[in-house]
């Protein structure tokens, strides 16, 4: 649509808008290497904050906890989404509608609500808050996202191929593991990457469900920054940002290989 005469103001807001989205991230990365401890001016390059963050035992244990929680959440979410979607595929239209409503409600409900609801039930039943409860809490939300991605993928799967395999004498298990699962694999990988990055970024669910002894990296950062600006947080933030951007590129790469171009990208993100 290059022939449309572009209004200069539109171009200006468009460019500024994209700068606006990146500027704060650059500020964090630059301040992670800022020699001025008050972060008001640029005080020259220093690796002090990065070294401080790397050697901080709190950061290390937070990172380990986050990775644990993230991996467990990924496994639980993808498993739940996969079994759900396989059921959805064979369900009646009515069953499908009910399933879709459940997924949709989990996507739109603010995390505060589902986290408090789980908090109530865990404290009521007397379950000790910790890694397991955090994983369950995050999975409720993350599995809904994973489900949307897998649904998009399963639509591309032609049932005739599976039927052909069965007709040629493959047993149901072998049809599943050698035909269905490989067909869904890009979707499964994308869902896993998404679930992990959602979990790795989660504050609200962990805030309610991690209890007082378990601290994930976002919870640690959240505690550090509630009332002050500290250079060390910028260093941790830079690390987290780089990690998540890398994860995003893996996601985009998988999407690029499995579907094609921007259309599938936007569709798989749920639009």
């Amino acid at each position: 649509m290059t022939f449309i005469r572009k209004h200069p103001l539109v171009t200006l807001i468009g460019v500024l808008g994209i700068v606006f989205m990146w500027l704060p991230i650059f500020v964090v990365v630059l301040n992670a290497m800022n020699g001025d401890a008050t972060l008001v001016t640029w005080g020259g390059f220093t690796s002090r904050w990065i070294r401080q963050a790397v050697s901080d035992p709190g950061v290390r244990s937070g990172l380990v906890t986050s990775l644990q929680v993230g991996l467990l959440t990924t496994v639980v979410s993808v498993f739940a989404a996969l079994t759900g979607v396989l059921w959805w595929r064979r369900a009646t239209p009515r069953g499908r509608r009910i399933f879709d409503v459940f997924v949709y409600v989990r996507l739109v409900l603010p995390a505060v609500v589902s986290a408090t609801a789980l908090f109530l039930i865990f404290t009521r039943v007397g379950v000790q808050l910790g890694v397991a409860t955090t994983v369950i809490g995050q999975s409720v939300w993350d599995s809904a996202f994973a489900t949307v991605i897998l649904q998009a993928r399963v639509r591309l799967l032609d049932p005739a191929v599976e039927e052909a395999a069965a007709d040629l004498g493959a047993r149901p298990a072998s049809v599943f593991f050698r035909v269905t699962l490989p067909g869904l694999l890009p979707g499964i990988l994308a869902a896993a990457v998404l679930a992990f990055s959602l979990s790795f970024d989660d504050v609200v669910t962990a805030f309610f469900l991690a209890g007082s002894h378990v601290t994930t990296l976002p919870l640690l950062i959240f505690g550090l920054i509630r009332f002050n600006v500290s250079p060390e947080v910028n260093a941790i933030g830079t690390f987290v940002t780089v990690l998540l951007i890398a994860v995003t590129f893996v996601f985009v790469w998988i999407m690029g290989r499995s579907g094609s171009g921007k259309r599938s990208l936007t569709r798989d993100l749920g639009y």
Binding site: L23, V27, V28, S197, I221, V240, I245, F251
Partner: peptide, 22 residues
């Protein structure tokens, strides 16, 4: 489009925190 999506995928917490710097 990637320039819009990628920042959204980085940590929400860090992106909000960045504004305290600004």
């Amino acid at each position: 489009l990637l320039a819009v999506i990628v920042p959204f995928w980085t940590s929400f917490l860090i992106r909000i925190y960045a504004w305290t710097n600004i």
